[in-house]
Design a protein around this nucleic acid. Sequence first.
DNA 1: TTGTAGGCGTTATCAG
DNA 2: CTGATAACGCCTACAA
Lengths: 349, 349
Amino acid sequence: MPDRSTRHATILEVAREAGASKTSVSRYFGGERERLSPALRQRIGEAARRLGYRPNQIARGLKGGRSRLLGMLVADIRNPYSIAVMHGVEQACREHGYSLLVANTDNDPVQERTHLSLLASYRVEGLVINAAGHPTHELQAMAEQGLPLVLLDRWLEAFGADGVGLDNALAIDMAVDHLHERGYRHLLFLSQPVGLASPRQQRWQRFEQRLSEEPILHGERHDPALDGSAVDAIISAFLARAGRPAAVLCANGNVTLAATRALQALGIRLGEVGLLGIDELDWCSLVPPGITTLAQPTETIGRAAVQQLLVRLDGSEPAAPPRHALFPPTLIERGSTRLPGPDHDKETP
Amino acid sequence: MPDRSTRHATILEVAREAGASKTSVSRYFGGERERLSPALRQRIGEAARRLGYRPNQIARGLKGGRSRLLGMLVADIRNPYSIAVMHGVEQACREHGYSLLVANTDNDPVQERTHLSLLASYRVEGLVINAAGHPTHELQAMAEQGLPLVLLDRWLEAFGADGVGLDNALAIDMAVDHLHERGYRHLLFLSQPVGLASPRQQRWQRFEQRLSEEPILHGERHDPALDGSAVDAIISAFLARAGRPAAVLCANGNVTLAATRALQALGIRLGEVGLLGIDELDWCSLVPPGITTLAQPTETIGRAAVQQLLVRLDGSEPAAPPRHALFPPTLIERGSTRLPGPDHDKETP
DNA sequence: TTGTAGGCGTTATCAG
DNA sequence: CTGATAACGCCTACAA
């Protein structure tokens, strides 16, 4: 009886039990059963069952270099967006016979580097990366070694890797158009600190561009820290300055949360001041009269990430130029972008 | 130049480059640098850096049987509870030098079995299991092979494994006591279909017990499917039958969501009919006047799970009896359990 | 302090 | 169709 370490049957034991050779057993589990005589096939099958044998992926990976592992680096595992995408990634992995090694970094650039090399040490065959910082150097090195990478949501400038994410320009267009149609004329764009994060930058820039193109709209943008009461101040100052009808456009779920809180604190009913958020979260339908959102096709994005990796892995396109797959959001209209009408119509449930 | 497969430097190449032996290089990276002469140490370090060498965990795990991998089986990766716990698990793993292999099963018992054996094939050293179904057979086999297991949240009867989770009886006690104190006398316990899921069973049972002990309380329980409008019907029927002051006690986050929607649809203000949910979600503070919840110490639970695995792994307690670690929830009081007072006091923000 | 020689479980190559 | 045998990259006695 084994002491403490898990005792697994090996291919050799199965071979002995079945009166066959390692090779045949290997073939049996390597998807070449047809090449074995029915008799042998059955003996091996039974022996394996009797011994509870499972091929050791680790050993397998050692020989062939195929770990059958994909890695995913997540900046913040508690972010619903990341999770939703991860779900898509995980599904796609499963469908293609891969397992997923997840590394969460809690937005810490140091852990980002650490985990990156950790994933590398497990010889993952590809990497989905959602980094907070800019581990450009590490990534560059990995890419040069031939490891397929795909950047999720945010991509680093001047770094030629594949990427997947939301079509940010389109999203801003849809948001601005919707608010415009609904009669809002003064728009406040609220973002988390823009810094270098590319999606924030892109949304921000597109918003500016739209403002300049349509002078009928008046707008401001701010990127406060969300932890204090800065948002309250910004919103009330904006309203005082800009006049109505005004709306707040939130660059992501966190901001939407903060803005909703702020509007509640200011005693302002949603809709009276418009509110539109990028990212759909389950509470958005709950806060009366419902918050209008642009939902990201998170599952699709996750699957697309894996697809990109598989294309590279496939090897048919040895070194195709980097490809960015952008996906459109879906507008979910709710009461928060419905101006109280002249007849004070109640919203329909 | 390598064709397509990622090319990694091996220990042998480093050894040659440094003019040393494999052994010395192995020692260098195996945490025995002190045993090398400063000269050798430096040569190896430089050679390794030059070649971009990283020890291959896969090969490492093959020899010693230490994959440095922990596995986590998650029934529903999109459930915030699972995520929160996973965050704790992941942190604890990291702190102890393990990586986490995550397998999501989308509540599918078939995938549960599949993924279980998949995790086994990667020779994970321990397993955190949050299963929807009852893969008792597979788990039994793994446990007997000496693989440390810890059941998360729900445990299977008559299966002697470690477990971690919420102290469900205490949670129900806290909920009932709170509602009682706040003046609610008629309680409706709402759960998802109880079936065999142990936490639902436990909460359910404890609720019954409390009712029988305190005849001053009147209560009912239901476990409707949450997809239709069944919840609306149940709640309005209950209110008609039971009278006021009445409150709804929700067994988990999903139920709280459904109940909140139902109360909104019925045009009932929260508080007027009490609402208390087990599980804290970020929207609970947003729906006016805030939903009172019992927050689970999810992070703690996740870390505790890993702790249990490490104890088993440690080997100091070869086959100690199964241990269940239960943790108390935290009551977060909000407006949904505040009866409108005689003076119609506004809640304080 | 350093090096040599297995062996971990599997697959791939080459004979039979 | 089947089976030896040599890698794969690393670790661990054992020897020098």
